[in-house]
């Protein structure tokens, strides 16, 4: 295992790219039910990876395991060469995993810019003295955060809403706030749980555009769960299909579309979107 270079020798002396996020043989049980079974994943820097599967296949569980909300029964999770299995969620987050949620999880009575600021929590280093007396350190950091927040909100297209309380915003904008909050942590990888859930066609196209822009401008690795196949097929480089906690297929969008197992388990026999 090498920590410092992305190109290194692995196994029998052949060259390979080290994965940014690597999950090895991860399993999780709820009571007696095996929700995730020996799950493997390797996401490289700058890759967009999709995870599809029917309802209850275990997709969100995998997100919850990676972000530390649940602790895996077995297996290892390695982020950028660091073992993060079983750590507390706030530590995993600080190591560089940002996430959005299937159902909106915003702090409803706080403003948009406060969401972005609070996600910088582990990077804010001025203490109580700074908070009380407005030391130069605080002013400097606050100015940096303001600027960062402004740029970020602009990229997501909600900079005009920065002082609005989120509960007053339309649904599509609230989804964008979640995205901005996750990005504000400057994660190494972004986990998106159904980013287009409940959106109308117009919002959907805008959201896809935002995801593309995040990928292009920040070069960020993205791992996304999606129900709408059009979205995954358009955005992702590689797709995994999950059914009853097992990965039944993995490959490029074309491979997935033509894989009989996927068609059988998930897409239905007749048509592929």
């Amino acid at each position: 295992m090498c920590y410092f270079v992305s190109w290194c020798l692995c196994g029998e002396g052949k060259k390979c790219i080290m994965a940014l996020l690597e999950v090895k043989k991860m399993s999780h049980e709820f009571g007696g039910l095996r929700a995730v079974n020996s799950y493997n994943l390797e996401i490289e820097a700058g890759q967009i990876r999709g995870l599809i599967g029917p309802n209850g296949a275990g997709k969100t569980t995998i997100f919850n395991l990676i972000t530390g909300i649940y602790k895996p029964t077995e297996g290892d999770i390695i982020l950028d060469g660091k073992e993060i299995t079983g750590l507390q969620p706030h530590k995993i987050a600080a190591f560089g995993i940002g996430r959005t949620f299937q159902n909106l999880q915003l702090w409803r009575h706080m403003t948009v810019v406060e969401h972005v600021k609070l996600a910088r929590y582990s990077r804010i280093s001025y203490g109580l003295i700074g908070a009380f007396f407005g030391t130069p350190k605080r002013q400097k950091q606050e100015a940096e955060i303001e600027e960062m927040a402004h740029n970020l909100l602009k990229m997501i297209g909600i900079d005009h809403l920065s002082d609005q309380v989120v509960t007053n915003l339309p649904y599509g904008d609230q989804r964008r706030v979640e995205m901005a909050r996750a990005l504000s942590m400057e994660p190494k990888i972004l986990l998106l749980d159904e980013p287009t859930a409940g959106m109308n066609p117009e919002e959907l196209i805008q959201m896809m555009e935002i995801i593309r822009r995040i990928h292009k401008e920040l070069g960020m690795a993205i791992f996304l769960i999606e129900h709408r196949l059009k979205v995954v097929m358009d955005l992702c480089h590689m797709i995994q299909t999950l059914n009853f906690g097992h990965v039944i297929a993995e490959g490029t969008p074309e491979e997935i579309q033509n894989n009989p197992k996927v068609i059988d388990a998930y897409l239905g026999r007749e048509s592929v979107v």
Binding site: I69, H90, A93, Q105, W107, M110, A119, Y121
Partner: peptide, 23 residues
């Protein structure tokens, strides 16, 4: 004005997402 205060206000709304933001 402090980050802890801001975290307290957010904690009124949830205990699950906040840790995922590093708190």
């Amino acid at each position: 004005r402090s980050k802890y205060g801001m975290a307290m206000r957010a904690m009124a709304f949830d205990h699950v997402v906040l840790p995922l933001m590093g708190v």
